[in-house]
Design a protein around this nucleic acid. Sequence first.
DNA 1: GGTAGACCTGGACGC
DNA 2: GCGTCCAGGTCTACC
Length: 323
Amino acid sequence: MGTRLTIKTPGDFALPRDVCSYGYFLLAPNLWDVGSQTLLRPLDLEDGPATVTIAQSGGTGSALRAGFDRALGVAERKTARSQITRMLRLDEDETVARAFHRVDRRWKKSGRSRLFRSPTMFEDVLKTVTSCNVTWPSTVHMNRRLCEVLGRSSSKGAPRSFPTAAKLARTRPGTLRGRCRVGYRDQRMVDLAKLFRPRGSRPPEYDPAWFEDRSHDDEDVYKRLLELPGVGPYAAANIMQLLGRFSRIALDTESVRHGRAVLGMTGTERQITKEVAEHYEKFGEHKFRSYWFELWRFYEQKRGPAELWARDDIAASFTASQF
DNA sequence: GGTAGACCTGGACGC
DNA sequence: GCGTCCAGGTCTACC
């Protein structure tokens, strides 16, 4: 008999809307079940992986039910709660959304404010690196292969977990390139894993706790992220938003497309990139949210509501830079 | 400080 | 089925 946890949520939390709010919900090992509107994925806990299914049957603001495929110890329950809280941003209470909606009223009705992320910062960093310099299907493929080749299953038939920093740090670059198809990112990913790997009883060289610490200002965090292998201006800005720091926009070719197609901008790629950055200045500390929800609305106008997207269909049909 | 070219993969396309 | 071209962000060398 597996463990069942009840997890309280902020009054404005809606599982389908807040999970299906960022492209990572479509990447392994996440699995959004369209039929049951539940999220399934393995979590890495003290005694190994455990697969959790998360449901919210009582509507917006109601508690979550998290069912695991095995019994969890006391410490594991605490870790699982913490990882689910991070992933679903349950620590962002209603005051965060209210502050955002005061700056950008367009999202008040839908209640959009949270952006889905991973249970750990390390997984967010790796997912960001797999999204650089590739089209979306390749990102999907890399994440699937990383889990299949290096992840662990909690039980027979259960999906494999995302590889831990410790596991990835021990992996040969050739394995990543040959079996996970990560290309030239192979050595960079091993180097990243070494930086995020716990060192015995000491914290890792890159300690997620430092990055999550709100007393450090955005500029310092951004500069430190830029020192990571495989992380440039786009990736650093994206990791910033995944850390809950929305004062920068991750500018890429998709920003240029959005500038041209939706904001009506003209000129060279460089001019539009600059114009897009200036356009969102007015949203201050929330500018990434405003930018992202505009992009997301564009995708939903083309594909329908995100909570109805089937992972494999979207992976196959979405082309360049659609997330 | 700015810029050109290499890095790798998967998909599209032409033959 | 094969070859070629293209998209994508980061890194390094060079001016």
